[in-house]
Nucleic acid binder design. Structure first.
Lengths: 211, 211, 211, 211
DNA sequence: GATGAATGAGGGTTCATTCAT
DNA sequence: AATGAATGAACCCTCATTCAT
């Protein structure tokens, strides 16, 4: 879990302040490690530059903390909520998509940050953090695709591949929507239509992949 | 098409030298605009720093030129080669995937650069370049999805959505492969297996979406 | 001496704690004023940063206190022990060298600190402290060179100069030994050999300078 | 000799400008590596901060260059001028002292810088530079003490030790003079008296150590 | 056209010093 | 008295951009 040197300091931090730093830093690091600017982070978090380095040591230290924290959020507020009893993979994907949307609402920068972290991986985080991040990713994939009822799929179709098709379809749709959405207000207005259309994709997947 | 101030200057440039700059800059900008460093570009391109700025004015100017150039490559070496007569969308997607792999071989940094440009959009390019880039993207989608024989799909399935499922599936598979591929050599060794597996996905799509 | 503003505060300090601060600070300041870091001092002394500044006001304030304290050590534990009855300067130098070695053992950082303070003089200490330091130095020279029996020297040799030659020789040898000594263990192993060789120099001086 | 990466860049530098940087940096580094401030160096040298780093890469890089350069000065303007035919060590020491005074006049910060470099050794310079510096020092000692006519010393006196006594005496006197000298003007006014007194020490050494 | 020396604003990091508790 | 969180000035270093040649 990355018990870096500063962890105890960070834990001792005023939690409200820590929250502000986490939010500001995640938003900033979503732009990429190098582009992220600690000046903007401290300004948005409302603390001094010195304090940031007092707690996190270096920019990389902060980055590692934010990444590990994001992983923990994924574990606690996403993976923990996945219904492992659900063996109908399409139904499960529908539910996880809803979970993700909730999460994305509570932590607006979370998925952008994680996506960037993934693209930039190996460059910035230390070995331990990177390992934790990789494990989080594989755990997430596994948790979604494990324990599925393969007998639901049409005969003669590889279950693993069919599940992937369902997964990529939902991801593809989500991505395309984010792309087309300009603003947060846009997003809220379109929310209903978005869910509706998503359900239609779900139906097609069910109709075509399932018996 | 981005008639920026410097365009005529750039055209007057020795074409071999220009090619070297384009390759070097694309590779560098694939890392992201801010992270890209003009020092490395001029070093790899074998020209002086002064000359780079003589032709392109600013780093952003260079970026815009590279982005527009990449769009032109997409038009000339990808979209132009798509078989518009092909009405079987799954077959068409298979062919475009092969085209992309060819392109990726000829311009190793092209898709990485475009992906980064997409993720970073709005921040760097000027309005006109951004518009051109957006148009290229939508033209690409349209060119693939236009003029497809919807009667091939099973009855009761929205053709547009079914086509998207096929599209996202192939993209999803490509992305997952790139992720798992560590090196260029890896890639060449796995090439055959990659195509084989891709074909299997194609078959599943055909079996499930088509009558 | 050096009645700076904080002196009474410092005297009110718990003496054990003060001792720890003095030792830690002297060791740290032996590296040079600027390089010395108050964080390391408080850590080694086992007190809080706030307390350090409560007592000493500023880094310079602490430095001045340490320097004055070191001077007092020199007065009390070195100059006070010099045998003023001893008129044989060479014998006296031999004895003072032994005294210095004792002192160096009791206060490992003392001479390093004073040497650094001397090299850096004028930059850091306040005027009064600097004066006290200078006086300590000249007192030390005087105390060693005063009241010597000049009749022991060969005729036709200026006694003052001859005494200096003896002084510089012993200092020169000491310095060269410190230079060649890598570690504290080294030092203890070589201690006997060191004294032996020193005695040989003493003999030469006696043979050449004295009648 | 330390062919570091930047050496060719430095050699291509305008020599007058380089001279200004060397002088400014040597003066500044004579305060110690950490205390030295690149802002003051560039200000005194009359160049921009960027240029300093363009040529020398890092503060350490500059330091190493200055140290190597100082060693070269020692070789070319000091060791090369020592009369190796001179077998009378006392006469030789007298001559080398004069050489040093000349050097000290031409390069006012040289010996201060080297003394500081010696005290701080192992911390800052890279391995190669450190080796070169160490070699310069040992070459200097050797060149002075080699090839001396031991038959000049009184019988029963170890020649090596006797030579050291002479060496330390002259060094001791020089050091004491520098200490007492406040300003450059002081120095020039006292120059004659200084030489006179030095000669007297020489005479004593001759009278006492030689047959 | 072509070069690369020169600039300076911006960014990460350190550390003496202050202050609320 | 005692603590350590909080501050900001100062420092090293990078890099886009300019300009004299």
């Amino acid at each position: 879990m990355g018990e870096s040197l500063e962890t105890h300091k960070i834990m001792a931090m005023d939690s409200e302040k820590r929250e502000r730093v986490i939010n500001a830093a995640m938003k900033e690091f979503a732009k990429g490690f190098k582009v992220a600017c600690t000046d903007r982070i401290v300004k948005e978090a409302g603390i001094s530059k010195g304090l940031l380095f007092h707690y996190f040591g270096t920019k990389s230290g902060l980055y590692n903390y934010i990444l590990e924290n994001a992983c923990e959020v994924i574990y606690n507020e996403y993976l923990a909520l996945i219904d492992t009893e659900q063996m109908d993979i399409i139904e499960k994907l529908w539910q996880t998509t809803l979970l993700k949307m909730d999460l994305s609402y509570k932590h607006p920068a979370l998925f952008d940050f994680l996506a960037k972290a993934y693209v930039e991986q190996k460059e910035n985080p230390d070995a331990e953090t990177a390992k934790y991040f990789a494990k989080t990713r594989s755990d997430a994939v596994e948790k979604v695709l494990e324990n599925i009822d393969t007998s639901l799929f049409k005969d003669g179709i590889d279950a693993k591949k069919a599940a992937n098709i369902a997964l990529w379809t939902l991801n593809g749709y989500s991505t395309s929507q984010i792309t087309n959405t300009k603003s947060m207000e846009d997003y809220q207005n379109e929310y209903e239509r978005y869910l509706e259309e998503l359900k239609e994709y779900i139906e097609i997947l069910r109709k075509t992949l399932y018996k």
